[in-house]
Write a protein that binds this DNA or RNA. Structure first.
Lengths: 168, 168
DNA sequence: TTAAACTTTCAAAACTTTTTGAAAGTTTAA
DNA sequence: TTAAACTTTCAAAAAGTTTTGAAAGTTTAA
């Protein structure tokens, strides 16, 4: 396969993966494009390469900055803004985990905590089943949360070494 | 909070979480409803409680069975089909991880493997950047895959005990 | 100041996904 | 057989999401 085709394929795949993971397709594609660009790109260049509108490009770039995945850069003597992506895959994974934890896990845990407080008669099957599911899921969510927290604070090397060895 | 309100809230939250995680809202809501039902429910009951159409209910129930999250049950002497959810949270997490691994991770790894094979001149920054990102992401994806595989094969208890201790 | 170069906004349009509901299909009991 | 009870299908409609592009806003250099 030739480099240009490979690049296109990479952008396409990353976009698809993104849309399965709550990051929208264009956002993931712009990210992919910046990931494989040795130099920072302008809005104009991104619009052209991915054939997207100015408005879309601007919004997407802003979102990506919000996710901590890309940064603005200014070249001395130039008015234009350049964008570049952090190329460190471990950082990317960490950022995504961090954001999703904040955006999705935290609100759910808040609701579950509230729902765990509901009281009732344990001999009432309606209550008992509700209560068991809610408490179990709450425990699971808290466990995941704690795990993420620890992972985010941990150092990079254990990851590349393979966490999985620990479960053997 | 009163039990009925709590149930509604649980179904709503689970639905929201589902839609952020690639499982559609109705599917997650039906699952939530079955999770907190002490007894199996019929299509009719589910339609009524969640105010969804017959077609939608039928499709959703089929999908949930496909994900391994619920099962059909027959009551002796009755024509109707009843549905019930596995209430074991660890099983639920395992099933979801298993399915997503198969549906999403595997195809990506396949593409990345292909893209890793692309050759070029390492002094060409275009190639070098592309290659580094692709290989790094490939390593990450494989690592996640391996971790999932091990987790899925592992026993339940280490999870409830808290994996996170291992990262301390 | 001014105007050129650039960025941001947002209502409307395009596209995608989900849901509906009526019709077709299947199973069972009599 | 038949018909009632139930399940499945799928084209069209509704709902939800993303994208466009023109207009408004901002910054900078002169």
């Amino acid at each position: 396969m030739e480099l240009e085709e490979a690049k296109r394929k990479f952008i396409e795949s990353w976009g698809k993966l993104g849309s399965e993971w709550g990051i929208n397709r264009t956002m993931a594609q712009v990210h992919a494009l910046l990931l494989i660009s040795p130099d920072p790109l302008t809005t104009e260049e991104i619009m052209e390469t991915l054939r997207i509108s100015r408005g879309n490009a601007n919004m997407t770039l802003r979102d990506l900055i919000g996710w901590g995945l890309i940064e603005k850069q200014h070249k001395p003597g130039e008015r234009k803004e350049y964008f570049f992506a952090d190329k460190d895959v471990w950082n990317i994974a960490k950022q995504v985990a961090k954001e999703r934890r904040k955006r999705e896990l935290e609100p759910v845990i808040k609701v579950l905590d509230e729902l765990s407080k509901v009281t009732g008669d344990d001999r009432d099957p309606e209550f008992a089943t509700f209560n068991k599911s809610v408490t179990d899921i709450n425990k699971l969510a808290k466990n995941v949360d704690k795990t993420l927290e620890t992972m985010l604070g941990a150092e990079e090397n254990w990851f590349w070494g393979g966490i999985f060895k620990m479960f053997k």
